[in-house]
Amino acid sequence: MYHHLPGVAPADQMQNDGVEPSSFTTKLLQKVEELTLYSAEADKRLGEQQTLLLQMQAQLKAQQAEIDRLKAQEAARL
């Protein structure tokens, strides 16, 4: 179940109690900044994971080539 943002009153409470525009705008800007920083960090982690994936794929390809070479070498001996 989803909940409202921490530090921001639920919509029904704001409707009943009213909203101070400057205070609400400040809170929204804080939430936008938090989400922007979170998104930037997530993008950085994704880039690191993609780099690691490419390295692992290259390593796997090299290992498979070595396996194939050794199989061919063993088959030639027999």
Rank of each mutant, 00 (worst) to 15 (best):
E33M: 14
L35T: 06
Q30I: 01
A11S: 06
Q50H: 15
L28T: 07
T25I: 14
G7D: 03
G7Y: 02
A40Y: 09
L29F: 09
T51S: 10
T36A: 14
G7I: 01
E48R: 11
G47K: 07
D43Y: 07
E66I: 03
Q49H: 05
A58D: 15
V8T: 01
A9K: 02
L60E: 10
A42T: 08
G47Y: 11
E48N: 00
D17G: 04
S39H: 11
A76V: 01
P6R: 04
K71V: 08
S39K: 09
A40F: 03
D43P: 02
K61D: 13
A72D: 09
A72R: 11
S23K: 13
M1E: 01
P6Q: 05
E66L: 12
K61F: 15
L35C: 01
Q13V: 08
K31D: 01
A72Q: 15
E41L: 12
A65D: 15
F24A: 04
E48K: 06
G18W: 09
K71F: 14
A65Y: 05
Q30L: 09
L29S: 02
Y38H: 15
S39P: 05
D43K: 07
Q59V: 11
A72T: 13
L70Y: 08
L5M: 08
L54E: 15
S22V: 10
K31Y: 02
R69F: 12
L37K: 15
Q57P: 06
D17T: 01
A62Y: 00
E74N: 15
E48G: 07
A40H: 14
E20F: 01
Q50W: 05
Q30H: 13
A58M: 13
V19Y: 02
A11D: 05
L53W: 08
Q30K: 10
Q64P: 03
P21Y: 06
S39N: 14
M56S: 03
D12P: 00
E66V: 08
Q30A: 13
R77I: 08
Q64S: 14
M14E: 02
E34P: 04
L28A: 10
P10V: 03
V19R: 00
T25M: 12
E34V: 15
E66M: 09
Q64Y: 11
H3F: 00
A9V: 00
G47P: 00
K61R: 15
K31N: 01
S39L: 08
A65S: 13
